[in-house]
Design a protein around this nucleic acid. Structure first.
Length: 754
RNA sequence: UGACCCCUGGUCGAAUUGGCAAGACGUCGGAUUCUGAUUCCGAAAGUUCUAGGUUCGAGUCCUAGGGGGUCAACCA
């Protein structure tokens, strides 16, 4: 792997290792064995396994089998197979959440014992209603105050099967008025009298995801637990459970990233299942499906999928990846892997009238183009009757058409030049065969001696020796980029699969069944799993790029450049009378800016702090600016009094700014330390040697040094004034941030702009 | 409508943590080519969602607004 650009997850791990938080990185991939893996999962797999590998750790495969009603051993085998196929190895670390059912149960009892969980007899409907809405708090369950003993007793009876399904559940006792719905006394265990595919009928109760997942992570010593964005709200519960139980430290941490979405397909298990069950596709491994099984049957190699995932990157932005990127990754992978042969998918008969009926010319043809460093040839047979692609002949050739037409001449790849002299038509006027003559001096790539040229080279097969074959030509599953809604099946591309009967050159008969080819000028293909030596069937993996077809296409390739026209309301802020009055008073009494005053008027805690600062620092404007712009961000939801420094320290910092001991940049660095460790501004500045440079002569020297070290850039400043920023940055770096910015800029401007 | 997450060329995404707006895909040219492929070269494409503020300097910090997503399953 060459240099790969970093992403936030890699940065998190790097930082944790640098901080000595973990000795070894352990991740996990936790599929629920209730469906097939698709290319979206491939992203998760590449992150989970990829990060572990990159940091010399390990990644566990853990089946999240907490819902026996939906899960199955067959899915487990398919999933394990797909992961291995993709090229990853769990190195013996194959686990099941069900391995931990006993320990999980004990953890649940521990939670009950701490008074943090209770058995609730409400029905599912009552629980739903009691949970409230996103804007209204929920109600306490009437069973919330059962005693620990009562709960323990009930929970044990649940386990023993004393109650019917749905009779009661175990819930955490957290906060029914939390803004996070996940924290409103979430369910931990339910009764399920179903046979589990691994534990059989030993359990009558099963833990929910939120309870099982974090604890399974903890039990396995997972350090970094990656999941997709929609579990963001679950993280608070993940941490709550671990925080309230006696689990080993450090606890695993959950991080979320955006799942992969691809254009012209669907990715949800539900929709994929619907396609399979309705017979719109032939199964989970239909080559049009985004499943790993489908891609594999299509002929895509795991290398291509991994390269694609690497290109896509990892971030938290919900985005839709262009399917052209996948197609590009597949082509790039296959370009050096697929040997070139010739096949005719839409045959048109050619009769070479100048060629003797019985004559067969056997020609060596390279398997690889000049820029693929591989060797090898096969024999192709030139005979009187051939097939070419229907598209390579035109009765009425459009402009720039470089192929065959009546009276025109083309090169047959590895064969001879032929010239069309006539066509045979059927009674309805369709061309059924074309009649040509050949030039004997042009065999196998030779040019004729008379200096004639030809514009096109087309592929062909011998009618005498070629083998009949079926070609399954796949296209995008959906005809629109974002299929959506309940009627998404209406948006299926009717031409996502077309079957054609054609011919392939005889040489392929000797190849292994898993050989991948480039059928020249058409695309990458390989044998379908249904293919037999007697009845060959090839799947098109991906077409070649075809700039001719694009130029002939009537459909616009790009949606005409659309600017996102978002109506913006730029109305000035309207404050209610109370805040308006407070704002006016702040401006009038203290002379601070209107913007700062508005913020302070609306944030009474900040305003009080500001007044306290004003008592100790003599510049009200500076006080307001720093309270508003710099102080707020350190609050992090906590009251200001929780900060490790007080108003006196803060005012002291402003004093250092006021007497030019510090420039704003240094002052921010000081504040950063104050917020982290507390302490006085003066002491911190002193300890670090942070003091603004006041010696202009010394400054001049440093600046000149920076300019001399970047002469070519210095020359470019006049064209690109932003480069001044670069130089200022360099000076700041050279001085450890201690240069006075304003002065630096003045000197730079004088020196560089003349 | 509450909380949380997110917003950088058509698409996906970097930005040394406040200092020259990377790269890839796609598009459009050109060269090479026995594949209208590949390869190579080049170009276009950005008011970094908007407005205001802080700063010598803002994609990055502050305030407000806009847009998108997630959450109210005895699913995961």
């Amino acid at each position: 792997m060459e240099h790969e650009s970093s992403h936030f997850i890699r940065e998190i791990i790097r930082a944790d290792i640098a901080a000595g938080k973990h000795k070894q990185v352990t991740t996990r991939f936790p599929p629920e064995p209730n469906g097939y893996l698709h290319i979206g999962h491939a992203k998760a797999i590449c992150v989970d396994f990829g990060m572990a590998t990159e940091f010399n750790g390990q990644c566990h495969l853990r089946f999240d089998d907490t819902n026996p009603a939906k899960e199955d051993i067959e899915y487990e085998n398919a999933i394990a197979h797909d992961i291995q196929w993709l090229g990853f190895d769990w190195q013996g670390n194959l686990f099941h959440a069900s391995d931990y059912f006993e320990r999980l149960y004990l953890y649940a009892e521990a939670l009950i014992a701490k008074g943090l969980a209770f058995v609730c007899d409400l029905t599912d409907a009552e629980i739903r209603v009691g949970r409230g809405t996103v804007t209204e708090a929920g109600n306490h369950s009437p069973y919330r105050d059962r005693t620990v003993d009562e709960n323990l007793n009930l929970f044990r009876k649940m386990r023993d099967g004393a109650f019917d399904e749905g009779h009661c559940v175990l819930r955490a006792k957290i906060d029914m008025s939390s803004v996070n719905m996940k924290m409103r006394d979430p369910l931990l265990y339910r009764i399920r009298k179903v046979v589990h595919h691994r534990t059989g009928d030993t359990w009558q109760i099963y833990p929910f995801y939120d309870f099982a997942h974090c604890l399974s992570d903890s039990i396995e010593g997972i350090t970094h637990s990656f999941c997709s964005l929609e579990f963001d709200n679950n993280r608070e519960l993940y941490n709550w459970i671990l925080d309230n139980l006696d689990v080993p430290k450090p606890q695993p941490r959950q991080y979320e990233f955006a799942r992969l979405k691809l254009g012209y397909t669907v990715m949800s298990k539900r929709r994929l299942l619907q396609l399979v069950e309705s017979g719109r596709v032939s199964g989970w491994d239909d080559p049009r499906m985004p499943t790993l099984a489908g891609l594999r049957r299509r002929g895509v190699r795991p290398e291509a999928i991994r390269a694609f995932i690497e290109r896509v990157g990892v971030s938290k932005a919900d985005s839709l990846v262009d399917i052209a990127l996948l197609e590009h990754a597949i082509r790039t992978d296959l370009n050096h892997e697929a040997k070139r042969v010739m096949a005719v998918v839409h045959p048109l008969r050619v009769i070479v009238e100048s060629w003797h009926e019985e004559k067969v010319d056997t020609i060596d043809a390279d398997y690889w183009p000049h820029d693929v460093p591989k060797e090898g040839t096969r024999k192709v047979s030139f005979t009187r009757e051939l097939y070419i692609e229907r598209d390579d002949f035109s009765l009425d050739p459009p402009k720039k058409f470089r192929r065959l037409a009546i009276g025109r001449e083309v090169r047959l790849r590895y064969g001879y030049w032929i010239k069309c002299v006539d066509v045979d038509k059927d009674e309805s006027g369709n061309v059924v065969a074309i009649r040509c003559t050949h030039d004997p001096s042009t065999r196998a790539g030779h040019d004729p001696v008379d200096g004639r040229t030809v514009k096109g080279t087309i592929h062909w097969v011998s009618a005498k020796t070629a083998v009949p074959a079926r070609f399954a030509v796949y296209d995008r599953l959906f005809s629109i980029e974002r299929p959506d809604g309940s009627d998404f099946v209406q948006q299926l591309n009717p031409d996502s699969l077309t079957l054609h009967h054609g011919f392939v050159e005889a040489s392929v008969a000797d190849d292994d069944a898993d050989t991948r080819y480039q059928f020249e000028r058409q695309g990458y293909y390989w044998r379908d799993s249904e293919s037999t030596p007697e009845a060959l069937k090839f799947n098109r993996i991906v077409p070649l790029k075809d700039s001719w077809a694009r130029s002939q296409s009537t459909a616009p390739v790009l949606p005409a450049r659309t600017k996102k026209e978002v109506p913006q309301q730029n109305s000035a802020r309207v404050l209610d009378p109370v805040h308006q009055a407070a704002t006016d008073k702040l401006v009038a009494d203290l002379g601070i800016s209107l913007g700062d005053a508005v913020v302070l008027a609306e944030d009474i805690e900040l305003q009080n702090y500001f007044h306290a600062v004003c008592v100790r620092h003599n510049d009200n404007t500076r006080s307001a600016r720093w309270v508003v712009n710099e102080l707020g961000r350190f609050r992090d939801g906590q009251p200001l009094s929780n900060l490790p420094f007080d108003v006196v320290d803060f005012a002291g910092l402003l004093d250092l700014l006021g007497d030019d001991t510090l420039n704003p940049r240094l002052a921010k660095q000081v504040l950063e330390i104050m917020a982290k460790d507390g302490g006085g501004a003066f002491e911190i500045a002193e300890a670090n040697g942070w003091k603004q440079i006041k010696d202009t002569g010394a400054l001049q020297g440093i600046i000149q040094g920076v300019i001399d070290a970047n002469t070519e850039k210095a020359a470019g400043v006049k064209e690109n004034p932003r480069l001044i920023g670069f130089f200022a940055g360099q000076v700041m770096k050279a001085t450890g941030g201690k240069a006075p910015g304003k002065v630096v800029k003045e000197i730079l401007s004088a020196k560089l702009l003349g």
